[in-house]
Structures are given as C-alpha cells and as structure tokens.
Design a protein around this nucleic acid. Sequence first.
DNA 1: ATTTTACTAGACGATCAGTCTATAATTCAG
DNA 2: CTGAATTATAGACTGATCGTCTAGTAAAAT
Lengths: 212, 212
Amino acid sequence: MPTIASINKPRRGRPPKVSPAGDNTRAILIRSGVEALTENSFVSAGIEGILKKVGVPKGSFYHYFKNKEDFGLAVIDEYAKYFAEKLDSHLLDQQKSPLKRLESFVNSTEKSIKKYNYKRGCLVGNLGQEIGLLPDSFRESLQGIFLNWQQRVCTCLEEAQIEGELSRDANCKQLAEFFWIGWEGAVMRAKLMQSADPLSLYFHGFITALPK
Amino acid sequence: MPTIASINKPRRGRPPKVSPAGDNTRAILIRSGVEALTENSFVSAGIEGILKKVGVPKGSFYHYFKNKEDFGLAVIDEYAKYFAEKLDSHLLDQQKSPLKRLESFVNSTEKSIKKYNYKRGCLVGNLGQEIGLLPDSFRESLQGIFLNWQQRVCTCLEEAQIEGELSRDANCKQLAEFFWIGWEGAVMRAKLMQSADPLSLYFHGFITALPK
DNA sequence: ATTTTACTAGACGATCAGTCTATAATTCAG
DNA sequence: CTGAATTATAGACTGATCGTCTAGTAAAAT
C-alpha cells in the first residue's frame, strides 16, 4: 500500500499497478485463490488454474508471491477476513435474539452451499483436513482462525445468557468450541450428501442440547 | 476367490498368487493404500509412493487394478471393513453399558490418533472433504459407509434406551446421524490441533446433550 | 538517454497417471 | 519332457501438469 509520502514524492521507475477499488493483480489472484481453495484442496489446486481463471500470466505469480506457501497464507488471511465479516453480520445483529442470530448464520450458510451446488465448503475446513501435507506455517494460521470464530460465537452465547435464552450455568467457551468442531463436520457432510440437511440437523441438535 | 470347482479342476497356466494369510500383492497394495489415504488425500496420494512403500513395481499395479479409481474403491472397501470391525468390537461389547461402549470407541480413537502423531485421521472423512475432486463412484460408496456406521451407533443408542441410560423419547436415528456428522469434524480438529482434546470435548458434549 | 522498478514469457526439472513391451514363473496338455 | 497358456513382475516411456526460476520487456521516473 502506498503511503502519503510515497504519493507526494514518488519513487523512480514504473509505479505499481494499484487501483483504489482493490482490483489490482495481487488482490485478484488472492480472490481467485479463495474460490479455488473453497472447492479444492491446497495441494491439488494448481497455480496455473488459479491464474488462468483470471487471465493473469504465469510469470506474474512469482512477482507477487514468494512461493505457493506464501500465496496460501495470503489466501487464508483473506478468507478469514471475509468470513469474520460474514459472521459478524449475523452475530452482531441487534434486531434478533442471540440464538436467532446464530440460526441466521446457519441459514445463510445453507443458502450459500446450495447456491454453489454443494461444491464449495469451508476453506479452513478443507485445509484443516489436509494439514499433514501443508507447510507448518499453515497450522498456526488455521488454529488461530478457529479460536477467533469460537470467540465470536462465545460472545453470542454469553449474550444469550443475559437475555435468558441460555442457562447461566452454561460454559459458553466450551459450547462455542463444541459448535465449531462439529460444524466443520456438518459442512463436509453437506458436500458429500449434496444436501443442506446435515447443516440444519446439526444446528437443531446443537440448539436442543443447550441447557435452558 | 477360487471356487471349489476351480480347485478340483484348475485352469491351465500359472495360478493366481493367493496366500491364505491374505498377504498377496493385491492385498498388500490395498493395505498400503489404506495407510496412504488415512494420512493423505486421494488426489495428492501418488500411486508410485504407495507402490514404493511396499516395494511393488509399477507394472504390477495395472495388473491388479484397472486404474486409480478402481484402486481407490478397493481401498475404501477395505477401510470400511476394517472400521466396521473396530466399531463392533466396542459397540457390541456386552460387558459394558451401551453408552460406555461408545465411550470405549472414543477412547480407542484417541489412543490411535496419538499413536500416529496426529497424522492419520479418518479415511472416509479425508475423502469426503475432497469429494468434489473425486470420481462419482466414490460418493455413493462413502455415503453408504456413513449410513452403515450410523446404523451401528443407532442400535447402540436403542440399547441404551432399553437399559435406561437414554430417554425413550430420544430419536436414536437422528442422534446417531448427529454423532457422526460432528465426529468427523472432531477428528479433523484433532489433527489440526495435534491434540486429542477435541475428540473428548466433542464426546462429552454429545453425552451431556442426550435426553436422560 | 539512462536508471529504476513493474511485470511477463517461456523454459526447467520433477512428478503425475497411465501405457507398453519384454520376460520370469508356474501349470497343464500332449 | 516339451511347449503352449496364463499369471505376475519389471521398468522404460508418454504426455500432461506441477512449482519454480531466469532472462527479458514495458513503463515511468531522472
């Protein structure tokens, strides 16, 4: 990102191709990578396919990224950012009760997975499953993302306690962790069954399990 | 498998290499495949690697299997057979109460995942995650395996009802499906965290959620 | 014109699934 | 015993694709 200083007193040479809308080549590649990795695995997703989909020549890849690992980390970060926003858009919706907010997130995921014909799942789940084949740097990153998501759901459950939807005795942190552990299984199963039923079945089970 | 007739009146030519212990080349390849696919994904698992691990030359592979897909299906079948036996060894143990049998399965999985340094997961879960990249024939096979496992847990839960560990009102079929949906998420998370905690946390959550 | 930087074409070696030809091993028929 | 028949082993080979790299061109500054 260019600083104010670098705009006022530009460096010599050809300036980087950067647009305010964020549609520069690097960002385009990352978005293409997000799409690829929500459908494919990291190992089987080829760089060439990711490039071809957005018409960026192969030689450019190693100008923008050190290697595939570096690219992968950038893609993970972008997905985490996108997903955290999506999560917040539901979990922070003050119009609904806390548990209804969680339900709203689930419903939105159901719609989304149908929309993409049960081909796209959770990028973090996909990469988590093949963690044994991935660079070590991926593990920390993915672990941190789960912690982050769990924290958000935990807060939502605590608000449910305040509003009386959930027993004061409930261990929200543990429940949030339980939710995400199983949720990734539900997303996987939905892809396998080509049906959103596993998502709603899992959510229904989770809700009825909560101590009132 | 040779029939009685074919033993009494054998065909001409070299007979198929088959040992009563089942340690013929085909079986060895399948076992090597099971190991490979519990750690890797199908797409990223190379045939050459599977062959090299057991010292079988490449030419033999296409003698025993039509192609990689054919091999994959055989590997899945072998794993399903192995796993169903493992499951039964716990769930049919009349020494324990039904819910304790399920706990016994969970404990055994915890030990197993530790033993292999959190590298080996569930073959069915691994392949399920990448189902979008796999031949169509895999989907049916994997779906059927889940149905089978769910049926076994369902029966166990019904026995728990009889023994009074579980409410008569409980929907055992649905609970069994819930269990397996989430369980695959827990196995994935255990690999990612390099810890068996997600397995026990998930099981604990499942048990406390059951209607008494 | 020259320098600096941004970007790209295409080659490279490795590895992939799968094919092919050759031959070793074993058994039965005559 | 000989030779045909069949199973099984062996690995070179093809064509595609992989991640990576180098040597270059394009563009805008001095």
